[in-house]
């Protein structure tokens, strides 16, 4: 394997809201082509961290570099090269999906192949639908389509599968893996551990604004086992989600 370059480098990042310290000096790096997960309970500082790196929020202290660009000095240049899926984004009211994609094409100054883009996220038939008419999974897929418009080198996703049913979630996972196959690096937040385990090459676990662990999921699990941890109950080699997906099928449901 060749030496991968670092696409995101976060050093001693601090964010204060008044007297409250939301992020207390965290450091981590994301490598090119990696799917990197920020895990943690609600309010741990995941979204704040992500939004600082995306240039949406100002930081109190620390250094952040994305694609070799300092986010303080090169935010404008950076915005052209990254793709961001917000946790809860809204889209311009009263516009159909194709019109929205055209709008984002304009915002990024790129030509959009609407048909191809919608096909990629399985929304070909929804071309003339309004965003608010979409189901939860479709909304997330559409959101992902807007993120891909400028063929970004790094994609940020804030809780891409929260609130989705198991089929929709697996569908999003597949899309994320496909995007990574094309050489894109992805950093995402989630509080679903099985999602992190399935999807992420490395994860950082954040709690109370600090990274308390950062490694490959399998290494973290091995470490835990080595420390003498034992699960109380015997785990069957399948779980209820496997039963559910066996019975209902893995293909996504749209309605």
């Amino acid at each position: 394997m060749t030496q991968k370059e670092t696409v995101i480098r976060v050093t001693d990042l601090v964010k204060n809201y008044g007297s409250f310290q939301a992020v207390k000096g965290i450091s981590f790096s994301v490598m090119q082509g990696e799917i990197f997960g920020l895990l943690g309970p609600n309010g741990a500082g995941k979204t704040t961290t992500l939004e600082i790196i995306e240039t949406l929020r100002s930081k109190t202290a620390g250094e952040v570099e994305v694609l070799g660009l300092n986010i303080d000095r090169h935010a404008d240049e950076l915005k052209k090269r990254i793709g961001v899926q917000l946790q809860a984004a809204g889209y311009y009211p009263g516009l159909k999906l194709d019109e929205l994609l055209l709008l984002f094409g304009g915002l990024f100054n790129v030509e959009v192949d609407i048909q191809a883009l919608l096909a990629r996220v399985g929304l070909t038939e929804k071309r003339k639908a309004y965003y608010k008419q979409l189901s939860g999974g479709q909304k997330q897929r559409f959101s992902l389509a807007t993120t891909l418009i400028n063929t970004p080198e790094v994609i940020f996703m804030d809780e891409p599968t929260t609130g989705l049913d198991p089929q929709a979630r697996r569908n999003i996972w597949n899309l994320i893996k496909e995007i990574r196959e094309e050489g894109c690096s992805i950093i995402l937040t989630t509080h679903y551990m099985e999602e992190a385990e399935q999807l992420c090459d490395r994860v950082a676990i954040i709690d109370h604004g600090k990274i308390i662990a950062c490694n490959r999921p399998s290494v973290l699990i091995d470490d835990l086992l080595q420390s003498g941890f034992k699960k109380e109950a015997f785990i069957k080699p399948a779980n209820l989600e496997d039963v559910f997906l066996q019975l209902t099928g893995e293909q996504w449901r749209d309605n």
């Binding site: 995306e54 240039t55 949406l56 404008d76 915005k79 052209k80 990254i82 961001v84 917000l86 809860a88 984004a89 809204g90 889209y91 311009y92 009211p93 984002f104 915002l107 990024f108 100054n109 807007t146």
Partner: peptide, 17 residues
Amino acid sequence: FNLRQTLVVKRFFVTPV
């Protein structure tokens, strides 16, 4: 008000405009 409330402008902020 609505563009702000429904985070439409927030989404615009992560584009180069």
